[in-house]
Amino acid sequence: MTAVLEISGLRKTYRGRKGVRNALDGFDMVVEAGQVHGFLGPNGSGKTTTLRTLLGLIKPNEGRMSILGREVPKHLPEVAREVGAIVESPQFFGNFTAETTLSLLADAGGVNRNRVYSVLDLVGLRDRSKERVKTYSLGMKQRLAVASALLKEPKLLILDEPANGLDPGGIREMRTLMRDLSAAGMTVLLSSHILGEIQLICDSVTIISAGKRVTSGSVAEVLARHKSGAVKVRLEPGVDMMGAAQILRAAGAAVTLDTDHFTVGNASNPAQITKLLAQQEIYVTELTPVAADLEDVFLELTGTAPVEGQNRQVDETAMSAAGKGGWGQ
């Protein structure tokens, strides 16, 4: 596969009264052609800064970036025609109608105005296209933003939080749209906090934290690399579950009791569980690995899982705790 988007060693620092802060700290990312690629990271991790830098809105301090094989920002004017993007919240001049907004963009970009109606239809705004944008809900503005990105019939579509403000039906429509676009050969880079959606839609992901890539690869690979190692254990009815847990704890297992089963968190060798319990004539009826989902992996890698009794600050991540502080979009 060929890479549609490549970023390596991207660095962006901001100088403030509190000193220099790294918004991006040597960030790397590769997006292959034809994929829907998820771009994940906690608030302030550098996702939007990355996208803005890629699209020429922010100047990086260091690093290489290329889109469709051409180095940017040097060749951005040439490749911009093939890149549709929405960055952060949808922003439009409120007094123009959706139709006017898109037709002005079409004129500015040299795109046939006839495309306006087809993209408005695609995102479900055809019947409201003659209303002023300021009367739109957030979800409708989001749809309009997606329509503006699709207007160019881009090869690479960059969407920053496209599901923001969408109702459940809208989220599902967006999911279907992403899949259809990908099936039609479009590469989609999707930044989102809705990890369940990312897991459903995306072929691959990159997770960023404190301005650095913490993991990347296909969704299956990432999940496999970060298996939970936990197994769910169910015993025969009537067996003393507490006693079984004591036996395993005595052997060093991290056991969490539930109503009708218990979980062993550090079961690197599940056979040991059956062996230890069988020696005490306790027999296991179910022994299943607990699968990690993208949310678990995300929280583990970024260190942003909530801890009871603690209020995590926005810049507190596993990466920032390790030393260099990343911050800000």
Binding site: L55, P77, A80, F92, L105
Partner: peptide, 11 residues
């Protein structure tokens, strides 16, 4: 934010 939109089209 219209200027940013425009610059995404004409960088």
């Amino acid at each position: 934010g219209g200027m940013m939109n425009l610059l995404l089209w004409r960088p």
